[in-house]
Computed example of a mutant assay.
Amino acid sequence: MKVLLVGSGGREHALAWKLKQSPRLSKLICAPGNAGIAGIADCVPIGTEDIAGLVDFAKARAVDFVVVGPEAPLTLGLADRLSEAGIKVFGPKAEAARLEGSKAFMKDLAARTGIPTAWYATFTDIEKAKAFVCEKGAPIVVKASGLAAGKGVILCPTLDEALAAIDLMMSKREFGAAGDEVVIEEFLTGEEASFFALCDGTTAISFNAAQDHKAVGDGDTGPNTGGMGAYSPAPVVTPALESDIMARIVMPAVKGMAEAGTPFVGVLFAGLMIGKDGPKLIE
């Protein structure tokens, strides 16, 4: 089987390493790849968001299966275009990929399906966003709704910091179009964990949990980064908690997406806060 892997990060290096071990693999190609991936796959200079270029390459090289690592090409419709071309692909179509591409969409799904999450409001008007923050007070969380490479969430201990975060996203446009809409939500306390499930659109299998090192400074201080390492399994996610997450968060999301006519196929990511009231979905 000839496989095209899309992406250029550490995640794709891990995927390439594992794909290379398959006895069914005849050739592994990565677009665009990186220096590490180049040691185990043929790398081609096609950007992850060059949807037409990726589809044309897959057709020209008779690729059998495409594995998509990053969220951005999925939100841009790469899985849709590959499916239309008759090429098998691992990853959700654009409408389903909105779960990761839009925090506002995710929060609305949670509200609609009863998934436990923080209270929230979404805004495209900067003055209304500021008024909401002033009404609610601090601490509070301000998020760029769109994809911001893992950096679009600002935890605001004070009201001044919250107002500055809104300015940063909506006025100064630090995160570009990702900050045109913001989600302002409750500041939850507890221990964070990332949970993953393999989905076929109607069912899901747990891939268990991981925890990463998000904040730039020692002791979890400073702004969030795009990721500086992770470990799995996460001790905080016990077998009992894993079952609870599947029942109260993952399966309602899978069912809700299917009922909306946008079934999610691929690896479903759930960012969780584990507090005294149990797990809550934060992204």
Rank of each mutant, 00 (worst) to 15 (best):
M1A: 12
K2R: 15
L5A: 03
V6F: 04
G9A: 12
G9N: 05
G10H: 07
Q21M: 12
Q21R: 13
S22K: 10
L25A: 05
L25Q: 07
P32Q: 02
I37L: 03
I37E: 03
D42I: 14
I46T: 08
D50N: 15
I51T: 08
L54R: 09
R61E: 15
V63Q: 10
V66R: 03
V67D: 07
G69S: 12
G69R: 11
P70E: 10
P70R: 12
L76K: 14
L78D: 08
A79L: 08
K93A: 07
A94G: 04
A96I: 05
A97F: 06
S102V: 01
S102M: 04
K103L: 00
D108P: 00
L109A: 14
A110R: 00
A110E: 03
R112C: 10
I115S: 01
P116D: 01
T117Q: 02
T117F: 00
Y120I: 00
T122Y: 02
T122F: 02
F123L: 01
T124V: 10
T124E: 11
D125A: 10
I126W: 10
K128P: 00
A129Y: 01
A129D: 02
C134A: 13
E135G: 02
A138V: 02
P139Q: 08
P139L: 08
V141N: 02
K143D: 03
A144V: 06
A148R: 06
G152F: 05
I154S: 06
L155Q: 04
P157R: 09
P157M: 10
A162F: 08
A162L: 08
A164T: 12
I166V: 15
M169F: 15
S171T: 14
R173K: 15
F175L: 14
G176C: 07
A177N: 02
A178Y: 01
A178H: 06
F187L: 00
T189Q: 13
G190V: 11
E191K: 15
E191V: 15
A193Y: 13
A193E: 07
A197G: 06
G201V: 09
G201I: 03
Q211N: 12
A215C: 13
T221I: 13
T221D: 09
G222D: 06
G222R: 07
G222W: 11
P223L: 13
P223E: 12
G226Y: 04
G227K: 10
G227E: 02
G227C: 08
A230C: 14
Y231V: 12
Y231Q: 06
S232V: 03
P233E: 04
P235L: 09
V236A: 11
V237N: 04
T238S: 15
S243T: 14
D244T: 14
I245L: 13
R248D: 09
I249R: 09
V250W: 11
M251K: 12
M257N: 06
G261P: 10
F264C: 04
V265E: 15
G266H: 08
V267G: 01
L268S: 02
D277F: 12
D277K: 15
G278M: 07
K280S: 11
K280N: 04
K280W: 02
K280Q: 14
L281S: 06
